[in-house]
Design a protein around this nucleic acid. Sequence first.
DNA 1: AAATATTTGTTCTTTTTTTCACAAAAAGAA
DNA 2: TTCTTTTTGTGAAAAAAAGAACAAATATTT
Lengths: 203, 203
Amino acid sequence: MAQNYSHNVLKRFLHYRQCLIQFQRHGFRKVFSYSLGKEAGASAEQVRKDFSLFGIKGSRRGGYDIDYLLNSINDIFKQNSERLVILVGIGNIGQALINYEGFKENNIHIVAGFDLDPSKYIKRFAIPVYPPDRIPEIVRQYGVKTAIIAVPEISGQVICDLLLSAGIKAILNFSPILLKVPDDVIVNYVNLRNELETLFFYL
Amino acid sequence: MAQNYSHNVLKRFLHYRQCLIQFQRHGFRKVFSYSLGKEAGASAEQVRKDFSLFGIKGSRRGGYDIDYLLNSINDIFKQNSERLVILVGIGNIGQALINYEGFKENNIHIVAGFDLDPSKYIKRFAIPVYPPDRIPEIVRQYGVKTAIIAVPEISGQVICDLLLSAGIKAILNFSPILLKVPDDVIVNYVNLRNELETLFFYL
DNA sequence: AAATATTTGTTCTTTTTTTCACAAAAAGAA
DNA sequence: TTCTTTTTGTGAAAAAAAGAACAAATATTT
C-alpha cells in the first residue's frame, strides 16, 4: 500500500461518480448527500465524511455541485491524463477485458497484450499481442505503470516478477494467488470464483 | 444481507482454501496458523480467530489438519451439493464466464444463459442460451437459486426484478449499479472498471 | 515420567470504520 | 431585514475489525 486512504473509500468515490453521471443525465446540477448516498448505497453521513476527507466542499443548505464533484473525483483518479495499461494473459478473461466497454468509456487504454501462446500473436484482437519477454520493452516504450494479470495460477508470480522488473507500479490481479510485491507497488485482487462462491454460504 | 458473518471473513476462508490445496499438493497433511496466514496474506491470529468463529478446531502444538480444514470450508460453501447458476447477459464478460475454468474446477455449474440478442440463441456456446422471458421457466426447472448479472447498466435493475420474481435468492452483479433487492436476497458486486481505476489513485 | 517447547483458543487492547449529534452556514419566507 | 428551515462539516460516540497477550493443551525431548 502506498497511502492513507482505504480501498473501500476509493471504491465508494467511483460509485458516487457513477451515480452523479446518472443524476447529470437526468438534468440535475446539484445533489444532496442524502440523495447521493441513497443512490450509491451509503449513508448521507458517510458521503459527507468521504468528501470532507478529500477536502471536497459543498454549500450548506445548497448541497454539492455535480460538475465540481465529478471534476474532483476525476482528479483523484487522474482521469484527465492518459491512463495506460498492459494486459498479460489473453485467455477468457483477458479477451473479455480487451473488448470491455467500461474501460473505453473512462479513458483507460490497453496498449498491448502478452501471452505465451503464439496463436495469439496474429492480428485478431483490438490490441497487439506479444510474447511476455517483450514486456520490459513495451513498458518502457509507452511509459506504462499499470498492468492487468489474467494468467493461470501457476504463472501468476512469474509474470508479476517480470512486471516488477519492468517497472510496473500497480497491478490488477485476476489470478487466484497472493502476489509478493515490494511496498511501493499496489495490487488489487479480483477473484471471480470466490465472489460467486461466497453467495452459496447464504443459501 | 442475511447473516452474521462479514463478506471479508468469507472471502478469507476461500483464500485459505486456495492455499490449503497448494499445501496439500506439496505433500503436507498439517498446517500451522502462522504458515497458512503467511501464504494467504493474513496474520496468524486472524487465521485462528476465523476458524474459531466457525467452530473449526486444531490441535494445540499439532496445528490444523488440512483435510479437516478443507472439508469444513467446503461445508461452509456447500461444495458437496450441486451448485447451480444461471447467467444473464452473454456479452464479453458473460462469454468469458461460460468458459471460466475456475467455476468448473469448483463444482459450479452454469445451467443456462439468457440474452436479448437472438443471434446468441444458436448452439455456439457451451451452455444453452434463451431469451430473458424464459428465466422463470428455467429457474423452476433446475431449482436454481443463484444468478450472475452481466448486462449493461440500463438493463441491470430490469433483469434483477425478473430474477427476483423467478425466485432467485443470490446474485453476482457485474453491472455497475446498486440493485434494489429485498432483505432476504444477497448481492455481491464486481465492478471491473472500478477495481482497475482505484489503482490510478496511487500513481 | 517429568520437563520443555510450541501452538492453539480466547480474552483484552488497540485501531479503524461507521454512525450520531449538533453548531455553523446559507437559502428562502415573512 | 429578520426569522425559519434545511443541509453541510466535523468532533464525539459507537460498532466492527484487527492485533497482542497469555493460559491451556499437547507434542517432543531428556
